[in-house]
Design a protein around this nucleic acid. Structure first.
Length: 636
DNA sequence: GTTCTAGAAC
DNA sequence: GTTCTAGAAC
């Protein structure tokens, strides 16, 4: 590394309203950092008084000339305000953004509390100022010119970000890309606000309908975030309809800590789950499964394996479960909403009418599930009916003791996860059109049928399979294992009777992985199928995870191997064995954003993505690490 | 000006 | 699937 070409200075734009902790952030880093920093604070730049943007720019330039990295400590809340600071970047100077997205109330109370603050923004005016600033806020994007953007939503995130910069020595660099951003991008889903409005109407309507039926029980709508649109809409609607706010109310907090942190005594919580009823997804579902531990999964399996949109399933928690003994939760009701995520298979594609219908159904199923719990608890133990709505019903003894202890009533907390639109569903799209194949798409089929005519490209073949190098490899090593059976065009055609063949393809793939790793032990592989292949004839991709190839040129290439459009062979085998066919994902996934296959950071275009991927040494995502989806040699 | 994407043709 | 290229994005 030549020191002539690398100076590695950084301009960090701190982005956040007054009270978000910008000054604290830079001060904390500067106190412990080995790298020379300057803090450029517009509030004090003018001999201790507030100054101008121009003064900040001037001072930033001179600090950079002296060889310092700089913190730009001003609100920087919109793109225009940031643009001139972004231009400070250049050879040897990267521009980063650190976004301090703390709850508005936190920022306001901090601004109010500080007395001699440099910005002189104390007193009651603080709330007005912060709120006004937040209204016109534009979050930064990498394509604004930042080589790195990092989002912080709470103190823990801030601490991580501070440490990231403290640890950064004078010659170190940080991976480029966008980190930590919550994807609640309402702008990218047109009509979503309208849907929120409608959704909140449905929630209130259903709550109103069920309240008289559930005796003294109360219903609570919970959301983690203070800025929750749904929560404020529901609140407004409920008071407008004169619903008893002691019986139905909203609550901001963590649904897995309602008792310990929120002081709310709920027996039953609703979980906005996924169709597989499995942990994960990152939202409330992941949080609830995590808090409940393996008990919840086991108890869930007893009731159901999958769930249709609009349905709910009541799962009693064993007393060993941490959610039960620490938080007093006796039941989790899993409920599946409509699938509005355009990146998911079988989504409703902005069909909000259908979405609302499913949502209404979901709340009906949920409340009926809750009703069955309440009835079981108040009457004699009985099995509730097996309804079309869900596989519910459980024998729970009345617990008057608990009711006394907790001053009466039971709360049913209903979370909401519509804002991320992360719910998915499982329904088959059904009919498969017999596809017309273009001539170019027949190449693999031809080779599979007559491998002996293509000796030059065929690596090996047997009665059942042919192995070839991918003609346009998308990574250092990329081979295809073709099925030789005539009727198998792609993954969608695979059935139980093909299990043996799939197993053989998988084993042959593993054999080639082994060969490649004998040459280079650092190569890491995945084996899998494209959900919807472009070329005819079922083929298994055996591909190293470096994606270091000039043939990888566009978004479709990238996403076809790194999104869930790529179906790992191990999962396909498992699904074919258990369900008789494999799940296939939607082609919409190919249009999704570009994310690193290791650290999942987002990148604005293919060249930037590839340059990031070349140097990213992050561990692979949890999902990929499990179930032998990744084939790697142990590190030596 | 250059870089990058996306759509049509094959 | 790739190649080519117009024009969008930078």
């Amino acid at each position: 590394m030549e020191d002539s070409e690398k100076t590695n200075q950084i301009v960090v734009l701190l982005i956040g309203p007054p009270g978000s902790g910008k000054s604290t952030f830079s001060d904390t880093v500067m106190r412990s950092s080995l790298r020379p920093w300057s803090r450029i604070c517009q509030d004090i730049i003018n001999n201790g008084e507030a100054g101008t943007k121009a003064q900040c720019l001037k001072m930033a330039l001179s600090s950079l000339k002296e060889g310092n990295s700089v913190f730009i400590d001003r609100c920087n809340l919109d793109r225009e305000q940031r643009s001139e600071f972004v231009k400070l970047g250049g050879p040897g100077i990267e521009v980063h953004a650190v976004v301090l997205e703390l709850p508005a109330q936190v920022c306001i109370s901090r601004s109010v509390k500080r007395t001699g603050h440099e910005g002189n923004l104390q007193g009651g005016r603080a709330a007005a100022v912060v709120n006004r600033m937040l209204q016109s806020k534009e979050l930064p994007k990498v394509n604004e010119g930042f080589s790195r953007v990092m989002f912080c939503y709470n103190d823990a995130d801030v601490e991580i970000a501070v440490n990231t910069y403290i640890k950064l020595g004078p010659m170190d660099t940080l991976p480029s890309g966008c980190f930590g951003e919550k994807k609640s991008d309402t702008k990218s889903q047109p009509g979503i606000m309208k849907f929120f409005k409608k959704a909140s109407d449905i929630i209130v309507e259903k709550a109103e309908e069920f309240l008289p039926k559930v005796g003294t029980a109360r219903l609570v709508l919970v959301d983690l975030s203070h800025g929750s649109k749904i929560l404020s809409l529901v609140k407004a609607k409920a008071s407008q309809k004169n619903i008893d706010s002691a019986r139905f109310f909203t609550f901001v907090g963590d649904i897995t800590k309602l008792r310990s942190e929120g002081g709310l005594h709920c027996n039953v919580i609703a979980n906005a789950t996924n169709w597989r009823l499995k942990p994960g997804g990152g939202g409330v579902n992941a949080a609830i499964f995590k808090a409940a531990g393996p008990d919840l999964e086991t108890a869930t399996r007893v009731r159901a394996n999958t769930l249709l949109p609009g349905k709910a399933v009541v799962v009693p928690l064993p007393s060993t479960c941490p959610l039960h003994n620490a938080e007093g939760i006796t039941h989790v009701i899993h409920v599946l909403g409509p699938n509005m995520n355009p990146n998911r298979p079988d989504n409703l594609n902005n069909d909000y009418t259908k979405g609302c219908k499913t949502l209404r159904e979901a709340y009906t199923s949920l409340f009926e599930g809750f009703l069955s719990v309440v009835q079981d608890q108040s009457k004699f133990p009985k099995r509730s009916n097996q309804t079309a709505l869900s596989d519910s019903g459980e024998n729970i003894k009345e617990d008057s003791e608990r009711n006394k202890k907790y001053k009466g009533s039971q709360d049913n907390a209903v979370t909401n996860n519509m804002e991320s639109g992360s719910l998915e569903d499982t329904r088959d799209s059904g009919k498969k059109m017999s596809k017309e194949w273009s001539t170019w798409a027949l190449a693999l089929h031809t080779i599979a049928m007559h491998p002996e005519r293509h000796e030059n490209i065929v690596l090996e073949f047997s009665d059942n399979i042919v192995v070839i190098n991918d003609q346009y490899p998308k990574a250092r090593k990329h081979v295809l294992v073709l099925a030789r059976q005539e009727s198998l065009d792609g993954l969608e055609d695979v059935r139980k009777e093909n299990f043996q063949l799939l197993q053989e393809m998988h084993n042959v793939g593993l054999k080639w992985v082994d060969r490649f790793q004998n040459e280079d032990a650092s190569l890491i592989f995945r084996l899998g199928y494209h959900s919807v292949p472009s070329m005819r004839q079922l083929h298994l991709h055996v591909i190293s995870q470096d994606f270091d190839s000039d043939s990888l040129k566009n978004k479709k290439h990238w996403n076809s191997f790194t999104s869930s459009f790529f179906r790992d062979s191990v999962d396909v085998l498992e699904e074919v064995k258990s369900q008789g066919k494999a799940n296939v994902a939607s082609e919409d996934l190919l249009k999704g954003e570009l994310r690193c296959n290791r650290c999942r950071s987002a990148h604005p275009n293919i060249p930037k993505l590839k340059s990031h991927v070349r140097s990213c040494r992050s561990q692979f995502p949890e999902h990929v690490l499990q179930n032998s989806r990744l084939v790697a040699r142990p590190e030596t």
